[in-house]
Computed example of a mutant assay.
Amino acid sequence: MRITILGAAAGGGFPQWNCNCRNCAGVRNGTVRARPRTQSSIFVRSDEHADGVLFNASPDVLEQIRSHPALQPARGLRDSAIAGVVLIDGQIDHATGLFMLRERATPLPLWCTDPVAEDLSSGNPILRVLGHYCGVRRERIALDGSSFEVPGAPGLGLRALPLSSKAAPYSPHREQPVPGDNIGMLITDTRRGTTLFYAPGLGEITPAVFDAMAGADAVMVDGTFWTDDEMIRLGLSRKTARDIGHLAQSGPGGMIEWLSRLPSRTGRWLIHVNNTNPILDEDSPERADLTRAGIRVCEDGMEIHL
């Protein structure tokens, strides 16, 4: 299985267009050793010659496709290696890119849960708008643990797990979450038996989620914030990481502590990193803490083979 990190940043990307925090200002003026990142999305295929699945369609999807020739194999006048799109949630930074895929000649194959489909048909009616262009062939992601495949992406088996997190701010159940607002995905190479657990938005690690993580060969999980009060301390928000559905990396019960409990063989990556997170600074003590813990930070363009 080949996993391409198309984008590794949280909403707004890095540097964020209107932000002058230490990270954003530093990467612009060269005083912080950090790499710019687009908004989070991955592309997964069973091998380098196969078509694959786009997990989340970020607002930066056109730039991401241009930057990764494997997604445009040029086998015909119009072509794409994207066999289908799977949405982890209905957040703006994970769904707006669907608009950019509207030039298809056939309806866009899209997998999402019922709550996400509802949100993208009402509060943020992307699916209805796309009906005026290519249209959408929406497929339901079940939450009962059953596996499914995306036709045209051979050798990949997918299974969803409902997560404790938050729906998008425009959702009517933002403050009263329902199962399916946010999911993690077990992605299995059915030929080799290797598995990735992918969860870019993760507010709590329940026993079922930890079991899925512990059984995977690699995990790629929520790297949004370093501390729970990060945005409050910087004066950028009145909400904690948990308030908006993210588990911070540091502190008791944080992501680092949970990842340290996984088997030693498990690969550990953080994705969906907010522009304020000090781990973006490659010389920061926080990045050094991750390195000592065997945790890596995703970068745009990174290729992972399982």
Rank of each mutant, 00 (worst) to 15 (best):
A8Y: 09
A9N: 09
G11Q: 12
G12F: 08
F14Y: 13
P15Y: 12
N18C: 06
A25F: 07
R28L: 12
R28D: 07
N29E: 15
R35W: 01
D51T: 06
V53I: 15
L54E: 07
A57L: 07
I65N: 00
L71Y: 00
P73L: 04
G76W: 13
G76N: 14
L77E: 15
D79V: 12
I82L: 15
A83M: 13
G84A: 14
V86F: 14
V86M: 14
I92S: 14
L98I: 15
L101S: 00
T106K: 02
T113I: 11
D114V: 11
D114M: 09
I126E: 04
L130R: 03
G131V: 01
G135A: 00
V136W: 00
L143E: 13
P151W: 06
G152A: 01
A153N: 11
L161Q: 12
L163A: 09
S164F: 10
A167W: 05
P169E: 04
P177W: 08
G180S: 06
M185S: 00
L186S: 13
L196S: 01
P200K: 08
G201Y: 13
M213A: 11
A214K: 07
M220H: 03
V221K: 08
W226K: 05
R233S: 06
G235D: 06
L236S: 03
L236Y: 08
H246V: 05
L247A: 12
Q249L: 15
S250C: 11
G254A: 13
M255L: 15
E257K: 11
W258M: 15
R261M: 15
T266C: 13
T266H: 02
G267V: 05
N274L: 09
N277R: 00
I279D: 01
P285L: 11
E286P: 07
L290V: 12
R292N: 13
I304G: 04
H305N: 02
L306T: 03
